[in-house]
């Protein structure tokens, strides 16, 4: 945790450019999300590095709730490359107003970039951290190289581990719908574990198309260790291949985004 980022946020708070900064802090040995509103609190600011792991929370999802309640307040928010992609998409989906958000970016370490197989492990504007280059999707290639019946067996086996906790949806910063197809009784039968396979997981995968920004929080929170990130990486590749649109990277809007006006039309 460098001084640079603290000073940058302190300046934003001091000049009243933001009303609060949504980041992470250490509290009783844990790392938790925190809304900083005083400069003196910034001593406790944390980037989430703990015991060789990087702790991340869906801060953008919290930002959606904060900005809905306080639409005229401006919030600073801690972003990594994936979070910044998320913000860009949430602006396009009219979930957050870009005029009221100040992202404060940090580049990810090479180690984290590799673990994530992240194409762009840094935000456009980095306040801190060394930018490292992107990594290609080896995990998708590995599965694509499987013979098709083996691939089907692989996925059905993975889906059969699901305990239907809805954690993948709950933690997803891009899941903002008021109504969720995964709770529609006509589509997904209730009272059964694992949930109907593969409809449950494929429904979610289809909804991630043109929306997933590859943060990997879903896979991290899955108690059954289903490789959800690989599934959504593949879905993202398919959209890119057919519509030349990669969420969080490309200008314009996802072909599947039919919400509201275009961002440039307000």
């Amino acid at each position: 945790m460098s001084k640079k980022i603290r000073e940058y946020i302190a300046e934003l708070l001091k000049e009243k450019k933001i009303d609060g900064f949504l980041g992470l802090k250490k509290e009783s040995g844990q790392i938790i999300p925190y809304l900083f509103s005083e400069i003196s609190e910034l001593e406790e600011l944390d980037t989430g590095d703990k015991d060789g792991k990087v702790i991340r929370y869906p801060l953008n999802k919290m930002l959606i709730q904060l900005s809905r309640r306080y639409p005229d307040k401006t919030f600073g928010v801690f972003v990594r490359g994936c979070d910044e992609r998320g913000l860009k998409e949430l602006f396009k989906w009219n979930q957050i107003n870009p005029e009221f958000v100040v992202p404060v970016g940090v580049a990810c370490s090479e180690e984290l970039a590799k673990a994530c197989e992240c194409k762009k492990p840094y935000p456009d504007q980095c306040i801190d951290g060394e930018k490292v280059s992107g990594i290609s999707n080896k995990r998708v290639e590995d599965i694509d190289s499987m013979e098709i019946s083996k691939r089907l067996r692989y996925w059905l086996n993975e889906f059969s581990k699901c305990i239907k906790c809805y954690g993948c949806r709950n933690i997803c910063p891009m899941c903002f719908c008021n109504e969720c197809s995964l709770e529609k009784i006509d589509l997904i039968e209730t009272g059964k574990i694992p949930p109907e396979s593969p409809i449950f997981h494929l429904t979610r995968a289809v909804h991630m198309a043109g929306r997933c920004i590859d943060c990997g929080l879903c896979e991290e929170t899955c108690p059954a260790n289903i490789p959800l990130r690989t599934l959504y990486k593949k879905v993202t590749d398919i959209i890119d291949e057919h519509f030349s649109y990669r969420p969080g990277y490309d200008e314009g809007k996802s072909p599947l985004n039919i919400l509201g006006a275009r961002p440039d039309e307000g």
Partner: peptide, 16 residues
């Protein structure tokens, strides 16, 4: 609710 990512018990995971 979000699961605690730094809890050694559930390491960022939860049941329904």
């Amino acid at each position: 609710i979000v699961p605690s990512k730094s809890s050694p018990v559930n390491e960022g995971k939860l049941c329904i």
